[in-house]
């Protein structure tokens, strides 16, 4: 958990003005993803998750975050990447958007990197697949490429509503 602790410290130290261009990177499988730091509240280890009925499979349930109950989403399942058992490297990234907190379950968190606007390319639309709509851009960091995600698209409520409809319709 040392990575997590260090990252949390970084998060605490960071002020509004220094957040520009900063991204938190995490891994799903062999790819690295990045989200803007300004949405990230903290990173916690995997917790006991309480199941919710009638939710799409990627909404794993709710957890207790120091007295607050927040929903958690398995990002793998959200992208249709296939399930993977949680282990000690599995993390929950707590993001806050429009005043409500949601936890994102990822394989592991990596680091905070600077990715300037100039290093970000728009996502090439080749396959037009379902999950590519979450991609806000591709960021060059040294030799590697990080897939940058748009949190608000990831947590898009209207889409959840639709999926809920279907999930409940099938039920």
């Amino acid at each position: 958990m040392t990575t997590t602790d260090k990252l949390n410290e970084d998060l605490l130290e960071m002020q509004e003005d220094t957040q520009e261009g900063k991204h938190l990177t995490f891994a799903l499988g062999k790819e690295e993803y990045g989200i803007e730091i300004k949405n990230v509240t903290e990173i916690i280890g995997i917790q006991n998750i309480t199941d919710l009925p009638d939710m799409p499979n990627y909404v794993k349930g709710v957890i207790n975050l120091r007295g607050k109950v927040i929903p958690v989403m398995d990002v793998r399942l959200r992208f249709g990447l296939g399930e993977r058992a949680y282990d000690e490297r599995t993390c929950i990234i707590v993001v806050t958007i429009r005043n409500s907190a949601v936890g994102l379950i990822v394989d592991s968190v990596s680091e905070v990197v600077d990715i300037a606007a100039g290093q970000i390319e728009p996502p090439p639309l080749v396959r037009g697949g379902q999950s590519s709509r979450f991609v806000s851009g591709l960021g060059h960091v040294d030799e590697s490429v990080k897939i940058l995600l748009s949190i608000s698209d990831l947590l898009d409520d209207s889409e959840l509503d639709q999926e809920l409809e279907t999930a409940r319709g099938e039920a």
Partner: peptide, 11 residues
């Protein structure tokens, strides 16, 4: 405690 707005109303 309320469930998150993200989850909405559960039957």
């Amino acid at each position: 405690k309320g469930l998150s707005r993200y989850i909405g109303d559960l039957q």
